[in-house]
Design a protein around this nucleic acid. Sequence first.
DNA 1: CGCCTTTGACCTGCGC
DNA 2: GCGCAGGTCAAAGGCG
Length: 394
Amino acid sequence: MIKKLEEMREELAEAKEENRRLRESLSDVADKYGSLRAHFMKLLQERGGGKLHQAEDEVTRRSHQLEEEEGGSTVARQFVDLRPALSAKEESHNTELSTDDQDNSAHTNLDAGEMEVAASQPKTTQQQQPPDHEATMKKARVSVRARSEARMINDGCHWRKYGQKIAKGNSCPRAYYRCTMADGCPVRKQVQRCAEDRSVLITTYEGTHNHPLPPAAAAMARTTSAAVSMLLSGSTSTADQPLLGSNSLLAKRTLPLSSASVAMISSSAPFPTISLDLTGVPNSLPQWRPSTNIDPFRVLPFSNGVAPSLASFGHHDQQSHFSGLQMSTSCLTAGDEGGATSEFLPMKPHPSGPRSLAETVSAATAAVANDPNFTAVLSAAISSFMNRNGDGRE
DNA sequence: CGCCTTTGACCTGCGC
DNA sequence: GCGCAGGTCAAAGGCG
C-alpha cells in the first residue's frame, strides 16, 4: 500500500515536472511568436498600407472579445492575435463550410475565429472548391498523440465505444467511440496505440459537438474544430495545384515557430488530417503532423538534426518526403512565392541554395498569415494537455 | 435496469 | 467484378 502511494507520488512528481517543461516551452514559443508576429505586422504594413491597420485593430478587438468569452490564458491571447478580420457576410458564408451541423450549437462553444479561418480564404479560391468540399470537411480529422497508459485520454466528454478493429499496419486494435453527451452528437473519435511506441495513445477526432461542452472538453473541441477549419484553408488553396505530383495527395503547410521547432499541418484527400504530437518530448513543442488518407494514425516522421528530439519517430520510407518540412528558419524554402501561398511541397533542394534571412522570415510570416487559426489551435491543444497534466495523469 | 464493452457481421469505398 | 480495408451496426453479455 505504502509502496503504491510512493509510486503514485513519483508519478505525480513526474507529471508536475513534465507540466513545468511544457509551460517553459509554451512560454518560449509565446516569446518567439511575439517577435515573429511583430515582424509579420511590420511586413504587412510595408506591403499593404492603411487597411491593414484596420484589420489589426479588428483582430485585436476580436481577440479580446474571445478572451472575455473563454477566459483564455495570456499565452492563448497572444496566439489568437493573428486572426483575420472579416465581414459578417463572409462569416455567415463560411458557417456553411463548417463541419457537420450548420445550426450546430457547439459553434457557440467554439470561438468565432474558427469560422473566420475559412472566411479568410480568398473568395476566388472558395469558388473553385469542388462540389463535395462540404463532404470532405465532414471527414476532416484531428489526430492527437499523447503519452498515456490509460485506455483513452480523458478529454471531458462522454464516449461510447461502438466498434473495434485491427487496422492494417498496427497490431494494436483501433477503438471507435461516439460522443454520448447529447443525442445525435456527430462527433466520433478513434483511439489506437502507436505501433512503434505503445505508450503513445493516438486519438483522432472527427466532427463538431452539437451541445455545450465542459471546459476540459471545450479545449479539445476547439482544437478539433479549428484544425478542421485550418485544413479547409489548406485544401482550398491547394486543391488545384498542379505542382502536386500525381501520387502526392498531401497538401502540406509548416508553420515555423522557432529555430528548433516547426508546426505542421497537412491535408490529404479524402480525409484531411492534422496530427498533433503531445507526447511531451523535452524542449519540444506540440507538432502538427501530416497523415495519409490510408491510415490517419500512421505517424509520419520528422527527421534531421533541426529538431533532433523529434527525429525518433516514423517510417523511414517517407522520411525524405517530409524531411524538408522540418526546417529551421535558416532553411525554410517554401511558402514565400507571392507571399500568400502556404503550400509546402515535398522538399527539393532550392535551386538557388539557402535563402536570405529576410526571405526566410518573409516566408515564415506568410505562412503564419495564411494560417491565422493555427495559433488558436495550438494554444487550445496545449492548454488541454496542460489541464490534463495538471489534474494528474490518468 | 441502464449503460457500457465486446465482437462478428455487414456496408462502403477504392484499387486492380 | 473482386478483394481488401476501414468503418459501422447490433446482439450478447458484463458491471455497478
